[in-house]
Design a binder for these strands. Structure first.
Length: 487
RNA sequence: GGUCGGGUGGCCGAGUGGUUAGGCAGAGCUCUGCAAAAGCUCGUACAGCGGUUCAAAUCCGCUCCCGACCUCCA
């Protein structure tokens, strides 16, 4: 079987995955800032890493997956001028900051649960690690790479860049960043270099969230939390650090700088970045106002949607694109995925009842190899799914007695589909949740319909079928009897 | 403006120097009382223009178009 290879943003190529301390794997993913509801684009990133988490576990690794919660320190604008996002929200809604965080945390977890994401091993919050962030900041000052001005501590990027390739992750040129004209230092705060960012911010009198520190009352900067928490739970060096692509140039670049400045070590071996979800070719984002809330999608409450789509259909839709490609969101694409998802799941259901033969008329190993080769190739879920569909065709064909399968192969197929579809891709059969009453009614109706069909009263029979279809119940007359599905 | 990424059949979306992506939609056939489901067959796509090569959609150059980042953003 092929080796797992992962695309590393640092090297810009796929590298064979070799954990620092096999079988243990440490993975850190930048989580949400809880100042609003998570939209679908946010969900895509966490879903991508959910598959990474699941696949690594499937391969037998003992994964510690840390995904943080940002509940303090994330500013509206750049490190100088903005207001803390959560503090602002709290002020506007007249809530305690922790109330704001709680509201969106509950929603966030519910949504990810709807999408069948596994919870991370540890979900640390920034506000719960202020001490660690202060300690790290102190160390960076000791190492001469940060300075305090009037209660605020700044990271000295230009000094750091003399001994370390500050822009290694983004591939930008430092000179060009320094030359940038979009803002200048005039009229701005006390920081020395235009790229310098805050490790600790002095709290203004009206600021609600504040902690004591060696530099007076204040709160931690946005980037330092991830450096502090990743090193606390995964060590100074760990295997995988992930997040959305938009975090590369600032957040992740600064994270590396902080960790190196503090511990002299680059924190992660592999940096993984997911691409954006787009709507009509444009990035889905809150500021552009084109974002979808998962709830709106499930219920079809959105101008761009003709109707709702279930969480598993959406999950399947997202897995049909590679995590490093943009994925364009549209009604038609969702519809296509819905059909495909149903086809896949129907086939999975069929496996258990397949009749076995003395020989198999297909090569199971070929499908299995294709699936694993795909997943090993930087978690290529769309190709893995394509290989599974080859299996779907065969399963259906066996069910139609046009192909054959041995008992041993059937067991293998069952195992492969169960492990890949459910455990790795994280899909699940969506229970239609009929009550006993509905089932009883359906049995009665179909029984009556059977009677009229025996009498060749097809008009009556078809009327029953057509009327049921109108309320969303589809009747299928198979060779083995009548089945029905409800949506 | 700078940096980076991309333009694939009706739609979504993989891949890549020579061999099938896959899903959805469409056409035909089989099965069926008819439907549905399922199976089989079919469309022969890679923005444009040059170049390299025995061979390019895949490499190189130019042009056009789109996007991301450079400001908070997964």
């Amino acid at each position: 079987m092929s080796e797992l290879r992962i695309y590393n943003t640092l090297s810009r190529e796929k590298e064979v995955f070799q954990p620092l301390n096999a079988p243990h794997v440490g993975m850190y993913v930048c989580g949400p800032t809880l100042y609003s509801f998570a939209h679908l684009g946010n969900c895509r990133t966490f879903m991508s890493f959910d598959v990474v988490f699941r696949y690594l576990k499937h391969l037998g690794y003992k994964v510690r997956y840390v995904r943080n919660i940002t509940d303090v320190g994330h500013l509206e604008s750049d490190g100088d001028v903005g207001e803390d996002k959560i503090a602002k929200r709290a002020r506007l809604e007249k809530l305690e900051p922790m109330e704001v965080v709680q509201l969106y945390a509950v929603d966030f977890h519910k949504v990810l649960d709807d999408f069948n994401l596994l919870p991370p091993s540890i979900e640390p919050s920034a506000s719960g690690h202020v001490i660690e962030q202060i300690e790290m900041t102190k160390k960076i000052i000791e190492n001469g790479l940060a300075y305090e001005v009037d209660g605020t501590v700044w990271f000295d990027v230009e000094k750091f860049a003399k001994t370390y390739p500050y822009t290694e992750l983004s591939g930008r040129k430092l000179d060009e960043l320094l030359e940038g004209t979009r803002d200048n230092l005039e009229g701005q705060s006390e920081k020395r270099g235009r790229l310098d960012f805050a490790l600790w911010k002095k709290a203004k009198p009206e600021h609600i969230m504040r902690w004591p520190s060696p530099w007076g009352e204040g709160f931690p900067g946005w980037h330092i939390e991830c450096s502090a928490m990743s090193s606390k739970y995964l060590g100074e060096q760990f295997d995988i650090h992930g997040g959305g692509m938009d975090l590369i140039p600032t957040h992740h670049t600064n994270e590396i700088a902080q960790s190196v400045a503090c511990c002299k070590k680059s924190p992660a071996k592999i940096w993984m970045h997911t691409n954006m979800l787009t709507v009509n070719g444009q990035k889905m984002s809150k500021s552009l106002g084109n974002s979808f809330l998962p709830e709106e999608l499930f219920e079809g409450r959105h101008a761009l949607l003709e109707r709702g789509y279930s969480p598993m259909v959406v999950r399947f839709f997202m897995l049909q694109a590679h995590y490093r490609s943009t994925l364009d969101f549209s009604n038609a694409a969702l519809q296509a995925s819905e059909k495909g998802f149903q086809r896949l799941m129907n086939a999975v259901k069929l496996i258990a009842d397949l009749k076995t033969s003395a020989t198999s008329s297909f090569h199971f190993e070929k499908i299995k190899t294709e699936v694993y080769d795909a997943l090993n190739d930087d978690f290529n879920t769309p190709v893995a799914i394509a290989a599974l569909f080859e299996g779907v065709r065969i399963i259906n064909s066996i069910n139609d007695a046009k192909d054959t399968i041995t008992a041993a192969d059937k067991e293998q197929v069952q195992k492969l589909f169960s492990e890949i579809v459910f455990d790795v891709l994280g899909l699940k059969q969506e229970t239609t949740g009929h009550s006993d009453k509905v089932s009883g009614l359906m049995n009665l109706i179909l029984d009556l319909r059977k009677d009229v069909r025996t009498k060749k009263d097809f008009a009556a029979s078809d009327k029953i079928r057509d009327e049921l279809l109108k309320v969303g119940i589809q009747v299928k007359d198979g060779k083995e009897g009548v089945t029905w599905t409800s949506n």
